[in-house]
Design a binder for these strands. Structure first.
Lengths: 185, 185, 185, 185
DNA sequence: TATGAATGAGTCTTCATTCAT
DNA sequence: AATGAATGAAGACTCATTCAT
């Protein structure tokens, strides 16, 4: 018996977990990451107690949502790389049509708390690194395809993505400086 | 008596007001617009009561900070336009060196509340319009100078500034779409 | 299990609710309807949070106390009508010995806030109407018994009760005029 | 010179005082004796500072308003006694047409605080005693005139006025008992 | 294991009172 | 003497978190 007696319970628990993350993601986006935990629980169709059983506190929940978000972005990035005929088209698809990317970014920016949670979560970093690796490949391929200016990989894509996905601390005094001088000519 | 009839009261009150806005601006940036009002008051060196006398509630305070921020941006934009020898250099100076711009933007993005406050404040809109007017002039001049590609005015500058200064609602379903296709070639 | 599915939770909650209303009633009478909510909670033996869970704000609490008060008056009026041998004796019992009636009235008069709450609560009005219906019956019966002057029903009883139980607005300019002329001869 | 240099100032001060009392009386009636002092000051057309110069705290203000109210009632009672041809008519005029009386009463009942202030103010008591003295005379005269039942003086007039003007503590357990038994036959 | 009632610390906000001008 | 700005203590209310059922 590979499937023990716990399987149905596990799947119920899993459903709960997913519903909570989905509800939290939606409410974070709409109302910021300060929404009452009880509201999230209600939206997810569970009691607060259940929410707290899965996620010991708000930070844990934000972390889980962040991982989920970045995980989805990673999937989309890979899908684009796999499915589009050229690297260039993959990049265009990602940048112009990825709503997920923007939502993910928004969560990261939306509050000092969520920013800090993401900054400090190693698992999220790993996902971000995987995303960046795929993107780097894409950029290099696109340049090899002759579809992209040579200075873009470290420039614009960074402005649009790296800024968003990397741990750049906007509040710190250190400007990433956006490589702007080169760009506007 | 050199001073006008209300000068003594006004000057103290004015100083307080400025201190409160400065404190609020700093703390909003560092900790988000949810920082305890009492903390802001302490930082400003006044009692909570004084803070509430000037700004009936948090929204009023956020609004005042936003106006102040955008007002400073406007000053900087005008200063750059006036002081730099060419429009092009003015643009570069603004985009590469304006910390104020980034801070202003950050407040706008940092929470649903501040976003909504800015979106609904007519006075802020007027300042934003003035900023955009100066920027439009600069872009047109830079293009006349031959220093800027013709498609930039409506493109990149918009990506960097318009997105930031205009009332684009990131949370809405409608993508500004970022004119990306043209950009990456 | 003898108890129904919600009995355990409900019974504790119900007890809390009753304790809160009792505490509020007592403190409203002694200190007015402005007593700190926290004091009421303490008196009731619960935390403030519990108080607010049952009654979202002070108005809701005043309303609940008013309904409870008038409900008790209704019970007493009915009891008097049922238990006394004659209508006349029922009336005397009510007017001379009903402490509840006076306390109820006092809450209504004690502050503009409680006055307004009672004035606007339809449920309270319904209870008041039931009270008045029983009283009307009693007066008519007493007159039939020959124990009461014919002009009393619309006069003194109204002065004492109707003024108290009906929605007469003392603060308005319109005098109920108290049918005084007839009375003092 | 009987009128010293202070006379104009004194009269200004007196005007201030009167305005404050008038404003306080109006606002106590409308909003209860908890209205913000600053609101009273504004209504009176003076600064808070001035209000506090005249009345060191809220209790002093309530006391002053109470004295003023009862003083006006006394004037009206005397006027009625003087101007009406018979005691009976004076009584009818007072009870049926004295709006002042009701307002005065209402202030006394309206909150535990004002109740206590009136209960403890000797000056107010003296005014109340004068009022009662005039009323007693009127009742006795009316009875001599044969216009009033002999049991009224201690009964109804007490119910209507004494209850209102005397220091009966409604909240105490001791019922004045309203001499009801005799009344309803 | 899921639920939601209870708790109370943390914030917001008001307003009596003081005091510099 | 009049003014109204400043203060901070007090009270309202919310919500994260715990825990009995």
């Amino acid at each position: 018996m590979t499937a023990g007696p716990e399987t149905p319970l596990r799947s119920g628990a899993r459903r709960n977990r997913d519903q909570i993350i989905a509800a939290a993601k939606a409410m974070f986006l709409e109302l910021g990451p300060d929404v009452p935990m009880e509201g999230i629980a209600r939206q997810a169709g569970v009691g607060v107690g259940t929410l707290y059983r899965r996620f010991p506190d708000r930070v844990a929940l934000i972390r889980a949502v962040a991982r989920h978000n970045f995980g989805t972005v990673l999937e989309q990035v890979r899908a684009a790389a796999d499915e589009e005929p050229t690297a260039w088209e993959a990049i265009v698809r990602l940048l112009s049509r990825s709503r997920e990317l923007r939502l993910t970014v928004q969560l990261a920016l939306v509050s000092p708390l969520s920013w800090a949670v993401i900054r400090d979560d190693e698992t999220t970093h790993e996902i971000q690194d995987e995303i960046m690796a795929v993107l780097d490949d894409l950029v290099r391929s696109a340049q090899a395809e002759g579809k992209m200016r040579g200075d873009v990989g470290a420039g614009d894509l960074a402005v649009m993505c790296s800024l968003l996905l990397r741990r750049v601390d906007l509040a710190s005094g250190k400007d990433p400086d956006l490589i702007l001088d080169r760009r506007w000519s």
